[in-house]
Protein backbone atom coordinates (compact mmCIF):
# COMPACT_ATOMS: atom_id res chain seq x y z
CA UNK A 1 0.00 0.00 0.00
CA UNK A 2 1.54 3.27 -1.11
CA UNK A 3 -1.42 5.65 -0.79
CA UNK A 4 -4.82 5.65 0.81
CA UNK A 5 -7.07 7.40 -1.67
CA UNK A 6 -10.28 5.42 -1.87
CA UNK A 7 -11.89 2.53 -0.01
CA UNK A 8 -12.22 0.94 -3.43
CA UNK A 9 -8.47 0.26 -3.24
CA UNK A 10 -8.87 -1.79 -0.05
CA UNK A 11 -9.93 -5.40 -0.12
CA UNK A 12 -11.25 -7.15 2.95
CA UNK A 13 -7.84 -8.36 4.08
CA UNK A 14 -6.34 -4.87 3.80
CA UNK A 15 -9.18 -3.42 5.85
CA UNK A 16 -8.84 -6.13 8.51
CA UNK A 17 -5.11 -5.45 8.69
CA UNK A 18 -5.67 -1.73 9.30
CA UNK A 19 -8.35 -2.45 11.89
CA UNK A 20 -6.04 -4.90 13.71
CA UNK A 21 -3.36 -2.25 13.74
CA UNK A 22 -6.00 0.25 14.88
CA UNK A 23 -6.77 -1.97 17.85
CA UNK A 24 -3.09 -1.93 18.78
CA UNK A 25 -3.00 1.84 18.65
CA UNK A 26 -6.16 2.14 20.73
CA UNK A 27 -4.17 0.29 23.37
CA UNK A 28 -1.21 2.65 22.87
CA UNK A 29 -3.45 5.69 23.28
CA UNK A 30 -4.70 4.29 26.57
CA UNK A 31 -1.22 4.16 28.10
CA UNK A 32 0.14 6.65 30.61
CA UNK A 33 2.54 7.84 27.93
CA UNK A 34 0.36 7.57 24.82
CA UNK A 35 3.15 7.83 22.34
CA UNK A 36 5.44 5.49 20.39
CA UNK A 37 8.59 6.31 18.42
CA UNK A 38 7.49 4.46 15.27
CA UNK A 39 7.69 7.44 12.90
CA UNK A 40 10.44 9.43 14.56
CA UNK A 41 12.23 11.48 11.94
CA UNK A 42 9.28 11.39 9.56
CA UNK A 43 7.32 14.48 8.60
CA UNK A 44 3.62 14.48 7.67
CA UNK A 45 2.31 17.30 5.49
CA UNK A 46 -1.31 18.27 6.13
CA UNK A 47 -2.95 20.17 3.25
CA UNK A 48 -6.41 21.22 4.32
CA UNK A 49 -8.36 23.22 1.79
CA UNK A 50 -11.58 23.09 3.75
CA UNK A 51 -12.38 24.14 7.26
CA UNK A 52 -12.12 20.82 9.08
CA UNK A 53 -11.15 21.09 12.67
CA UNK A 54 -11.83 17.55 13.76
CA UNK A 55 -10.21 15.66 10.89
CA UNK A 56 -7.16 17.90 10.88
CA UNK A 57 -6.73 17.65 14.66
CA UNK A 58 -7.17 13.90 14.45
CA UNK A 59 -4.41 13.51 11.86
CA UNK A 60 -2.22 15.91 13.81
CA UNK A 61 -2.72 13.92 17.00
CA UNK A 62 -2.14 10.62 15.17
CA UNK A 63 1.11 11.83 13.64
CA UNK A 64 2.43 13.14 16.92
CA UNK A 65 1.46 9.99 18.82
CA UNK A 66 3.73 8.19 16.35
CA UNK A 67 6.47 10.79 17.05
CA UNK A 68 6.28 12.23 13.54
CA UNK A 69 6.60 15.93 12.83
CA UNK A 70 3.74 17.81 11.21
CA UNK A 71 3.68 20.53 8.56
CA UNK A 72 0.26 22.10 8.33
CA UNK A 73 -1.14 24.15 5.48
CA UNK A 74 -4.71 25.31 5.92
CA UNK A 75 -6.73 27.74 3.91
CA UNK A 76 -10.28 29.04 4.11
CA UNK A 77 -12.63 27.88 1.39
CA UNK A 78 -13.24 31.16 -0.35
CA UNK A 79 -9.70 32.54 -0.46
CA UNK A 80 -8.32 29.55 -2.37
CA UNK A 81 -9.30 30.79 -5.79
CA UNK A 82 -7.41 34.03 -5.27
CA UNK A 83 -4.23 32.36 -4.12
CA UNK A 84 -1.75 30.10 -5.80
CA UNK A 85 -2.86 26.94 -7.51
CA UNK A 86 -3.22 23.64 -5.73
CA UNK A 87 -0.30 22.33 -7.74
CA UNK A 88 2.01 25.17 -6.74
CA UNK A 89 1.01 24.82 -3.11
CA UNK A 90 1.61 21.08 -3.24
CA UNK A 91 5.05 21.57 -4.76
CA UNK A 92 5.89 24.28 -2.25
CA UNK A 93 4.92 22.05 0.64
CA UNK A 94 6.82 19.14 -0.90
CA UNK A 95 9.94 21.29 -1.02
CA UNK A 96 9.76 21.47 2.77
CA UNK A 97 10.44 17.79 2.92
CA UNK A 98 7.41 15.83 4.12
CA UNK A 99 7.40 12.08 3.66
CA UNK A 100 3.65 11.88 3.15
CA UNK A 101 0.81 14.26 2.39
CA UNK A 102 -2.67 14.27 3.89
CA UNK A 103 -5.06 16.13 1.60
CA UNK A 104 -8.53 17.53 2.19
CA UNK A 105 -10.10 19.44 -0.71
CA UNK A 106 -13.59 20.40 -1.85
CA UNK A 107 -13.01 18.97 -5.34
CA UNK A 108 -13.23 15.31 -6.26
CA UNK A 109 -9.86 13.85 -7.18
CA UNK A 110 -7.63 16.49 -5.56
CA UNK A 111 -5.59 13.92 -3.56
CA UNK A 112 -4.92 11.96 -6.77
CA UNK A 113 -3.65 15.13 -8.41
CA UNK A 114 -1.38 15.89 -5.43
CA UNK A 115 0.01 12.35 -5.61
CA UNK A 116 0.75 12.74 -9.31
CA UNK A 117 2.37 16.15 -8.87
CA UNK A 118 4.48 15.36 -5.83
CA UNK A 119 5.14 11.61 -6.19
CA UNK A 120 4.68 11.42 -2.41
CA UNK A 121 2.41 8.92 -0.65
CA UNK A 122 -0.97 10.60 -0.15
CA UNK A 123 -3.79 10.02 2.30
CA UNK A 124 -7.17 11.29 1.20
CA UNK A 125 -8.72 13.19 4.10
CA UNK A 126 -11.86 13.94 2.11
CA UNK A 127 -12.29 15.02 -1.52
CA UNK A 128 -15.50 16.69 -2.61
CA UNK A 129 -18.46 14.37 -2.25
CA UNK A 130 -16.30 11.47 -3.31
CA UNK A 131 -14.21 9.67 -0.69
CA UNK A 132 -13.16 9.94 2.95
CA UNK A 133 -11.51 6.59 3.57
CA UNK A 134 -10.13 7.22 7.07
CA UNK A 135 -13.63 8.16 8.22
CA UNK A 136 -14.90 4.84 6.88
CA UNK A 137 -12.06 2.99 8.62
CA UNK A 138 -12.71 4.66 11.96
CA UNK A 139 -16.38 3.76 11.65
CA UNK A 140 -15.51 0.16 10.86
CA UNK A 141 -13.10 0.04 13.79
CA UNK A 142 -15.79 1.44 16.07
CA UNK A 143 -18.28 -1.15 14.84
CA UNK A 144 -15.84 -4.03 15.13
CA UNK A 145 -14.82 -3.04 18.65
CA UNK A 146 -18.47 -2.76 19.65
CA UNK A 147 -19.98 -5.81 17.91
CA UNK A 148 -16.86 -7.93 17.57
CA UNK A 149 -17.38 -8.11 13.83
CA UNK A 150 -18.60 -6.08 10.89
CA UNK A 151 -19.68 -8.93 8.63
CA UNK A 152 -23.45 -9.34 8.59
CA UNK A 153 -24.32 -6.07 10.31
CA UNK A 154 -27.38 -4.28 8.99
CA UNK A 155 -26.54 -0.59 8.54
CA UNK A 156 -28.91 2.22 7.63
CA UNK A 157 -27.23 5.41 6.42
CA UNK A 158 -29.66 8.30 6.82
CA UNK A 159 -29.44 11.81 5.42
CA UNK A 160 -27.76 13.71 2.61
CA UNK A 161 -26.14 10.77 0.88
CA UNK A 162 -25.95 12.42 -2.53
CA UNK A 163 -23.45 15.04 -1.40
CA UNK A 164 -21.63 12.91 1.17
CA UNK A 165 -18.13 11.51 0.85
CA UNK A 166 -18.68 9.83 4.20
CA UNK A 167 -21.60 7.88 2.77
CA UNK A 168 -19.69 6.90 -0.37
CA UNK A 169 -16.70 5.61 1.58
CA UNK A 170 -18.74 3.95 4.30
CA UNK A 171 -21.21 2.22 1.99
CA UNK A 172 -18.43 0.88 -0.20
CA UNK A 173 -16.30 -0.43 2.66
CA UNK A 174 -19.29 -1.94 4.49
CA UNK A 175 -20.12 -3.86 1.33
CA UNK A 176 -16.52 -5.06 1.13
CA UNK A 177 -16.81 -6.27 4.73
CA UNK A 178 -20.04 -8.15 4.12
CA UNK A 179 -22.50 -5.82 5.81
CA UNK A 180 -25.86 -4.95 4.29
CA UNK A 181 -26.47 -1.27 3.62
CA UNK A 182 -29.73 0.63 3.30
CA UNK A 183 -29.68 4.27 2.19
CA UNK A 184 -32.45 6.30 3.78
CA UNK A 185 -33.14 9.77 2.40
CA UNK A 186 -35.58 11.89 0.47
CA UNK A 187 -35.18 11.05 -3.22
CA UNK A 188 -33.51 14.41 -3.78
CA UNK A 189 -30.72 13.42 -1.39
CA UNK A 190 -30.28 9.85 -2.57
CA UNK A 191 -27.46 9.46 -5.08
CA UNK A 192 -28.27 9.96 -8.73
CA UNK A 193 -28.35 6.50 -10.34
CA UNK A 194 -28.59 4.86 -6.93
CA UNK A 195 -29.30 1.56 -8.70
CA UNK A 196 -25.63 1.39 -9.60
CA UNK A 197 -24.76 1.32 -5.87
CA UNK A 198 -26.34 -2.12 -5.42
CA UNK A 199 -27.85 -1.25 -2.02
CA UNK A 200 -31.37 -1.05 -0.63
CA UNK A 201 -33.06 2.30 -0.25
CA UNK A 202 -35.90 3.58 1.87
CA UNK A 203 -37.98 6.75 1.74
CA UNK A 204 -38.44 7.09 5.50
CA UNK A 205 -36.56 6.15 8.65
CA UNK A 206 -39.61 4.35 10.07
CA UNK A 207 -39.22 1.67 7.40
CA UNK A 208 -35.88 0.51 8.80
CA UNK A 209 -36.09 1.09 12.55
CA UNK A 210 -37.12 -2.43 13.53
CA UNK A 211 -34.43 -4.26 11.64
CA UNK A 212 -31.11 -2.45 11.89
CA UNK A 213 -28.00 -2.89 13.95
CA UNK A 214 -26.62 0.53 13.12
CA UNK A 215 -28.30 3.84 12.36
CA UNK A 216 -25.67 6.08 10.80
CA UNK A 217 -26.87 9.67 10.61
CA UNK A 218 -25.40 12.30 8.31
CA UNK A 219 -25.42 16.02 8.91
CA UNK A 220 -28.18 17.89 7.14
CA UNK A 221 -27.35 21.30 5.74
CA UNK A 222 -29.86 23.54 7.46
CA UNK A 223 -28.26 26.89 6.69
CA UNK A 224 -30.84 27.69 4.05
CA UNK A 225 -33.64 26.06 5.97
CA UNK A 226 -34.24 23.47 3.28
CA UNK A 227 -36.35 24.61 0.36
CA UNK A 228 -33.93 23.55 -2.35
CA UNK A 229 -33.68 19.82 -1.82
CA UNK A 230 -36.46 19.28 0.69
CA UNK A 231 -39.34 21.58 1.57
CA UNK A 232 -38.32 22.49 5.12
CA UNK A 233 -36.28 21.23 8.04
CA UNK A 234 -39.46 20.35 9.91
CA UNK A 235 -40.65 18.16 7.08
CA UNK A 236 -37.25 16.50 6.89
CA UNK A 237 -37.39 15.70 10.59
CA UNK A 238 -40.92 14.36 10.26
CA UNK A 239 -39.74 11.66 7.88
CA UNK A 240 -36.04 11.18 8.62
CA UNK A 241 -35.16 12.59 12.05
CA UNK A 242 -34.07 10.12 14.73
CA UNK A 243 -36.43 11.28 17.44
CA UNK A 244 -36.61 9.78 20.91
CA UNK A 245 -39.81 7.96 20.00
CA UNK A 246 -38.11 6.40 17.01
CA UNK A 247 -34.95 5.55 18.96
CA UNK A 248 -37.15 3.59 21.37
CA UNK A 249 -38.27 1.39 18.47
CA UNK A 250 -34.72 0.31 17.63
CA UNK A 251 -33.63 -3.25 18.48
CA UNK A 252 -32.17 -3.42 21.98
CA UNK A 253 -28.53 -3.87 20.96
CA UNK A 254 -28.46 -1.47 18.03
CA UNK A 255 -26.26 1.62 17.98
CA UNK A 256 -26.35 5.17 16.63
CA UNK A 257 -23.42 6.82 14.89
CA UNK A 258 -22.73 10.25 13.43
CA UNK A 259 -19.54 11.60 11.80
CA UNK A 260 -20.16 15.06 13.28
CA UNK A 261 -20.72 17.84 13.57
CA UNK A 262 -24.25 17.03 14.71
CA UNK A 263 -27.34 19.17 14.29
CA UNK A 264 -29.06 18.32 17.53
CA UNK A 265 -32.80 18.47 17.04
CA UNK A 266 -32.55 17.99 13.30
CA UNK A 267 -31.19 14.64 12.20
CA UNK A 268 -30.77 13.49 15.80
CA UNK A 269 -32.63 14.17 19.01
CA UNK A 270 -30.35 15.80 21.62
CA UNK A 271 -30.98 13.08 24.21
CA UNK A 272 -30.41 10.30 21.70
CA UNK A 273 -27.11 11.92 20.80
CA UNK A 274 -26.01 11.70 24.43
CA UNK A 275 -27.71 8.38 25.11
CA UNK A 276 -26.22 4.94 25.68
CA UNK A 277 -26.67 3.84 22.05
CA UNK A 278 -24.57 6.70 20.67
CA UNK A 279 -20.99 5.79 19.74
CA UNK A 280 -20.09 9.30 18.63
CA UNK A 281 -17.24 9.91 21.05
CA UNK A 282 -15.84 6.44 20.38
CA UNK A 283 -15.79 7.33 16.70
CA UNK A 284 -13.63 10.36 17.48
CA UNK A 285 -11.10 8.52 19.64
CA UNK A 286 -10.95 5.53 17.28
CA UNK A 287 -10.30 8.01 14.50
CA UNK A 288 -6.91 8.84 15.97
CA UNK A 289 -5.99 5.16 16.29
CA UNK A 290 -7.03 4.26 12.77
CA UNK A 291 -5.16 7.24 11.31
CA UNK A 292 -2.11 6.12 13.25
CA UNK A 293 -2.57 2.72 11.61
CA UNK A 294 -2.76 4.26 8.14
CA UNK A 295 0.27 6.51 8.63
CA UNK A 296 2.24 3.64 10.12
CA UNK A 297 1.40 1.30 7.25
CA UNK A 298 2.30 3.86 4.60
CA UNK A 299 5.55 5.00 6.17
CA UNK A 300 7.13 1.83 7.51
CA UNK A 301 8.44 -1.08 5.56
CA UNK A 302 6.76 -3.63 7.81
CA UNK A 303 4.25 -4.73 5.20
CA UNK A 304 2.77 -8.13 5.98
CA UNK A 305 1.46 -9.50 2.71
Amino acid sequence: MRDLLSVDDLDRAAIEDLLDLGDDFVEVLGRDVPKVPALRGKTIGLMFYEPSTRTRLSFDRAAKALSADVLTFTVGGSSVSKGESLKDTALTLKAMGPHLMVVRHRATGAPWRVRDWTALPVVNAGDGAHQHPTQALLDLLTLRRHFGKVDGLRVAIVGDIRHSRVARSLAGSLQTMGSSVTLVAPSTLLPIHVESWEVDTAGGIDQVLGEVDVVYLLRIQTERGGGEVFPSVAEYVSRFGLTRRRADLLPADSVVMHPGPMNRGVEIDPQVADGPRALVTHQVSNGIAVRMAVLFRLLTSEVPE
Binding site: T108, G109, G128, A129, H130, Q131, H163, S164, R165, R168, P191, I192, H193, V194, S196, W197
Partner: peptide, 13 residues
Protein backbone atom coordinates in the same frame (compact mmCIF):
# COMPACT_ATOMS: atom_id res chain seq x y z
CA UNK B 1 -22.48 13.42 -17.59
CA UNK B 2 -25.02 12.58 -14.92
CA UNK B 3 -24.92 8.81 -14.62
CA UNK B 4 -23.34 5.89 -12.87
CA UNK B 5 -19.84 7.37 -13.03
CA UNK B 6 -20.82 10.78 -11.65
CA UNK B 7 -22.77 8.99 -8.93
CA UNK B 8 -19.70 7.10 -7.79
CA UNK B 9 -17.39 10.12 -8.01
CA UNK B 10 -19.81 12.43 -6.22
CA UNK B 11 -19.47 14.97 -9.00
CA UNK B 12 -22.60 16.93 -9.89
CA UNK B 13 -23.80 15.89 -13.31
Amino acid sequence: HEGSVSSRLGITG
